[in-house]
Structures are given as structure tokens and as C-alpha cells.
Design a protein around this nucleic acid. Structure first.
Length: 425
RNA sequence: GGAGAGGUGGCUGAGUGGACGAAAGCACCCGACUUGAAAUCGGGCGAGCCUACGGGCUCCGGGGGUUCGAAUCCCUCCCUCUCCGCCA
């Protein structure tokens, strides 16, 4: 949510900034609603004030044992008037709030302009793409060699876009998770948290999945619905919902390993092969809650923490600045990390690191006490994958493969796999 | 799942229809005393919104209702605790 005061006072400037990401705010509609809200609110509050004063008078008269019939008659039609205006006010406020919740975040000035993925800017590359003297297989072929990556079993149990991993691949998956958690907790100063995988609608509203993107979620339970988390960002960021944090506790740094569930509505026909786009995958997520004046440094830091995983695994990758049109709803600025996949001969997203500034904080009323103003003000929230585990497994398989289909174990991972040099040793 | 007790400010906790956004204590901040600290004394100290910047409105778990007036009464949902049952 954008700052309603800004929206009221600087509507034109905000609209121009939103246009950069392809969002057209209906300013006429918004300002009209806003004006009606203000008038109705003033009217309602005036009536409430009147009612409160008269009620007080009645109470005092009663206490003195004086008759109150006359006073009651005076108040008689006040209640009805108040009921009518406050009802109208309520509907206007609901409508206004609905509009506010559907406006995406404003891009940071440093975000490159663009309409889609093709307009993203590559910032840097790390590592050497491996050279093979054979045609590299993709992860699906590699996984099939030992029958340890089983999409048919996934389909039998659950449907398309599910996978079963067995044996060495299941272990590799676990080892990657462990490596990431150890790195972020030991070297990067994150507190590990374990959180629910089912959350209520309010949590989803806080981080921005609701109300606009319900189609992307799996919903369970009909009355008091719960939703399967699409990312740990949701429960972890919501840890600070409706809290006022003291300045000296910031930044908060959380790392969290969870499964992620995405309905992938609208992605039919995209990445249907392999483990790139599944309904269920696992991720180690980094979340920071920062002072506003420190959040962009925190974004660089957090992105660096995610990069470190790829560096440890010696996987070639590049850093991309998402353009305005490719960023997520809640993000003010996003860096994607894209890992090189020899099987596809291209870079694929493996991490997305965003500064949401105060966008989520305002929705969830996450604040800090600013010592300079002495007042509670919204914090800035950041999140990033550190990393997506399934895609990381894909990257290890494809980058570390040999001609006979065997897969070497990256040195950093060997301690987690019994010191094996090859996956199938 | 069954029975009971509860949900009030950062924390503890009083308040069962009228001057209550809310006693008291703790914590915290400012000041006095002190060489300094502690103790003591005095004062301050919730959040959100609107504003003609004088003020005003809302919030006592969420929602709804009764009433001129609700923290207080009624309905409903959620959550917590105790006991019983079941269970990893």
C-alpha cells in the first residue's frame, strides 16, 4: 500500500511513477472517492461529537435527578442521521481501501524502465560457464539415468508439475538446504525461524498476495480459509505485523526453509519440462526488516548473501536488475540472480531479492519507533531467495555432469554428502 | 472432540451502563536532590485518523446488535489457559 497522504497530496507525481511500471491509476476516480470520504468523515465526526455531548448532558441530568424526556427528544433524530452518514462513509471507505490495496508499489528511481523480462539489465556475471566435450544433458535426462527424478510418480500422486526425488537426489536436495541454512545462520547473521505453511487471509494481505492474486494461491478450508504459502516471505515478514519495533533491534534478519506452493495459474505451457516450475518446491528465504534509511544498503547486503551460495557451489550466474515492468507487485526494486543451465544453454532465475520499502509494512502496520521523530513509522521490508532449492539442484546436476552422466559433487557440498566426490559414489 | 475460565496500554492488572482512552504498580523519558550513582520527590509517558490547527473522531481480541450513551449487556467468530478424551 502506498502512503494515503502521499496519494492525496502528490497524486500526479505518484501516478507518473506508477506509469513507469505500466500501471495506470485512475486519478479522477481516486480523487473523487477521496474527496467524498473526507466530506463524509467530517460530517460523521461532527454528528458523533454532537451525540457524545448530548449523551453526556443526559447522564449529568440523570445524576442530578432531573427529567430527561426533553433531552431524549432532542437526540431522537440525531441517531438516524448518524446511522445514514456513517453507513455511506463505510461503503466509501471500503471502496477506497480496496483501490489502495490494488495499487502496486512505486519503483525506485534507479530501476530501469521497461515492459517485460527482455528489458531487464544485466549488471554482472560471476564464474565460468563449463565447457563440455559432449552435448550436455538437461536435468530431466540426468535424473532419469538413475531413475531418481520421477515425474510420472509425481503425476500419479498429485498431477502435473509435481516430482518425486529418490535416493541420491533426495539427499542432494537435503544437503543443499543444509548448506544454505548453515551459511546464512553462521556467516551472515540470520536467525533461523520455523513457521506455519498455512496462513490466514490477513497475512496474505500483509505481504500483498491478496486481494489481487488469489488465483496464484492454493486455498484450503472453506470457512475461515487458510492458504498454502507461496513463499516463506509471507509468514516470516508477517512476524512483525502490528508491531512497533525499537530502533536498536533493527535490522531483523530471518532465514527460513519452507516448501512453497503455487498454483501457477496463467503459466500453462511455460516450463512444462522438468523441475523449473512446480506446484510445490522448497526454498531457503532471507527476510530483513530494516530502518528506512538503511534499506537499500540492506538490499545490496541481502543480494550478496544469496550470491554467496552460488559462489560456494561454484555455479556461474549473473545479476540482473529487473525493469519496472517485470517487478513483482510489492517490490520497489528487485535484483534477480540467474544461474547458468548448460542443459538449456541459458541463465534461469534462481533468486529474487527485493526491497519492498514501506509497501508491506503499511499493509501490515509494521512500524519502528524513529528516535528522531519519537513516533512510530513504517519499517522497510526486504526478502530474497537464498536460494530456490529445486532449481539449485537442477543447476548442480547440469553444471557438474560428465560425459557418462555421472555428476560430481561441488566441494562445498561434499561434507554434507559423506565426503563423496561423485553423487553416486 | 467434551467441560470450565479468560482475552483491557510495552508488561502486571483494576474497572459489570454515564466525567473511562481507561485506576494502581512496573518499565521508560524529563527535572530536582547528589561529586556521580542508587534511593527519594515532582512531572511526563498508547495507537490510528480528520482538521477551519481551536480542536474533534475512533480503538479495551474480531465482527454484529441493544441503548440517548457500551470496556461494561446480548449474539457470533477467533485466540489463550486448566481438566478430560484422542493423537505424532
Amino acid at each position: 500500500m502506498l502512503d494515503p497522504k502521499e496519494l492525496r497530496n502528490n497524486c500526479e507525481a505518484l501516478t507518473a511513477r506508477l506509469r513507469r511500471r505500466g500501471f495506470e491509476l485512475d486519478t479522477a476516480q481516486y480523487s473523487e472517492l477521496e474527496a467524498r470520504r473526507r466530506d463524509l468523515q467530517v460530517d460523521t465526526q461532527t454528528l458523533q461529537n454532537e451525540r457524545n455531548r448530548q449523551s453526556k448532558t443526559i447522564g449529568q441530568a440523570k445524576a442530578r435527578g432531573e427529567p430527561i424526556e426533553g433531552l431524549l427528544a432532542e437526540v431522537a433524530q440525531l441517531g438516524e442521521q448518524l446511522r445514514v452518514t456513517s453507513e455511506v462513509l463505510e461503503t466509501v471507505q471500503v471502496e477506497l481501501h480496496r483501490l489502495q490495496l490494488e495499487i502496486p508499489n512505486v519503483p525506485h528511481p534507479s530501476v530501469p524502465d521497461g515492459a517485460a523480462e527482455a528489458d531487464n539489465i544485466e549488471l554482472s556475471r560471476w564464474g565460468m560457464q563449463p565447457v563440455f566435450d559432449f552435448t550436455p544433458r538437461d536435468h530431466v535426462e540426468l535424473g532419469a539415468l538413475n531413475q531418481e527424478m520421477d515425474f510420472e510418480a509425481g503425476a500419479k500422486l498429485s498431477g502435473a508439475r509435481f516430482v518425486v526425488l529418490r535416493g541420491r537426489l533426495a539427499q542432494l536436495h537435503r544437503a543443499l538446504t543444509q548448506l544454505m541454512l548453515d551459511l546464512h545462520t553462521r556467516d551472515h547473521g540470520y536467525e533461523e525461524v520455523h513457521v506455519p505453511y498455512l496462513v490466514n487471509a490477513q497475512a496474505m494481505l500483509g505481504t500483498g498476495q491478496l486481494p489481487k492474486f488469489e488465483a496464484d494461491l492454493f486455498r484450503v478450508v472453506v470457512e475461515n480459509p487458510l492458504f498454502l504459502i507461496p513463499t516463506a516471505e509471507v509468514p516470516v515478514t508477517n512476524l512483525v505485523r502490528e508491531r512497533i519495533l525499537e530502533a536498536d533491534t533493527l535490522p531483523l534478519r530471518f532465514v527460513c526453509h519452507t516448501p512453497c506452493f503455487r498454483s501457477e495459474a496463467g503459466s500453462y505451457g511455460k516450463d512444462t519440462r522438468g523441475m523449473i516450475r512446480l506446484h510445490q518446491f522448497e526454498k531457503v528465504e532471507l527476510v530483513q526488516v530494516a530502518r528506512p534509511d538503511a534499506s537499500y544498503d540492506a538490499l545490496e547486503e541481502l543480494t550478496g548473501h544469496a550470491e554467496k551460495v552460488l559462489q560456494l557451489l561454484e555455479l556461474p550466474y549473473r545479476v540482473v536488475a529487473l525493469c519496472t515492468g517485470d517487478m513483482g507487485f510489492a517490490a520497489a526494486k528487485t535484483y534477480d540472480l540467474e544461474v547458468w543451465l548448460p542443459g538449456q544453454q541459458r541463465y534461469r532465475e534462481i533468486s529474487s531479492c527485493s526491497n519492498c520499502e514501506a509497501f508491506q509494512a503499511r499493509r501490515m502496520q509494521a512500524r519502528w519507533r524513529n528516535p528522531e521523530s519519537g513516533r512510530p513509522e513504517p519499517v522497510h521490508t526486504l526478502n530474497g531467495s537464498g536460494l530456490a532449492i529445486g532449481r539449485c539442484l537442477v543447476a548442480v546436476l547440469e553444471n557438474y555432469q560428465e560425459a557418462d552422466g555421472r555428476v560430481r559433487v561441488p566441494a562445498a557440498l561434499q561434507p554434507y554428502l559423506g565426503g563423496r566426490a561423485y553423487l553416486d559414489d
